[in-house]
């Protein structure tokens, strides 16, 4: 696991716990099967549930950062200006990431495909690379196109990107020492997606690794319409 902020917990189970689960699962399975859907998430266990969100609702919202980086066409991209009025999902990662980045982007794409047109068309997914050395504009574009051609890819220097992350209280990206025959390296980076509201341009909810498609499906329509300033 290369991402440093959130890691999945793999807790070995005791025999008693496993036996209990088998019995309870019989009941649980019969109930969920009748629903015909996949709403098996544990929203009640997650922070922010009192407002109906499956992501983590921040007690103090994050201001949308102002920065200009370069997009995959080589053009300057003014983040604040270009995303103003859109539901913006901002994520920092790299194209060689084996786990967190492709899972997040793949899940967001799958859910957006099932969203109503007004949600899908007013959502911007912005991916900022933390590995500008290997993530050339061509590579970044081609990699993002595997998920969704509408996803925006941005590049800057490592220092620039780390400064932006600092304004969002995210840890800086850290490259490991080169290893293996091809001297490849991993980049430790923040694993959460930050959602900026279209109504007040603030980041109220973050999505750590472990967030699921059904959680995105629950939250995206709410994020689109929630009037945070009125709360």
């Amino acid at each position: 696991m290369q991402s440093i902020a959130i890691a999945r917990a793999r807790v070995p189970l005791g025999a008693r716990a496993i036996a209990t689960m088998f019995v309870t699962a019989l009941v649980a399975a019969s109930l969920t099967a009748c629903g015909g859907g996949a709403d098996v998430g544990s929203a009640a266990e997650r922070p922010g549930n009192d407002q109906g969100y499956r992501g983590v609702v921040l007690p103090t919202p994050l201001a949308k950062p102002s920065f200009v980086l370069t997009d995959t066409k080589g053009q300057p991209f003014d983040f604040r200006k270009e995303t103003d009025g859109s539901l913006t999902l901002l994520f920092f990662g790299y194209t060689n990431c084996p786990d967190v980045c492709p899972v997040h982007l793949g899940n967001i794409h799958t859910v957006l495909e099932q969203m109503p047109f007004d949600v899908k068309s007013h959502t911007k997914v912005v991916f900022v690379t933390t590995d500008p050395e290997r993530d050339t504009p061509e590579r970044l574009r081609s990699w993002l196109d595997n998920f969704d051609p509408s996803f925006i890819g941005l590049r800057g220097t490592v220092d620039e990107v780390n400064r932006i992350q600092a304004t969002l209280h995210l840890p800086p990206a850290v490259a490991s020492a080169p290893h293996g025959a091809d001297s490849s390296y991993d980049v430790g980076h923040a694993a959460q997606v930050i959602a900026f509201s279209p109504t007040d341009n603030m980041g109220h909810v973050i999505y750590p690794f472990g967030i699921r498609q059904q959680d995105w499906a629950n939250d995206l329509p709410k994020l689109m319409t929630d009037k945070w300033a009125a709360k």
Partner: peptide
Amino acid sequence: GVSMYLLLARFPVYSTYELAPPMSGITKL
């Protein structure tokens, strides 16, 4: 019953496979 449950689900039902490091060429759903 199990097959219909899987086929009718709008989203992946098992977090084990949904959050697993992806295999190229196949989406989770």
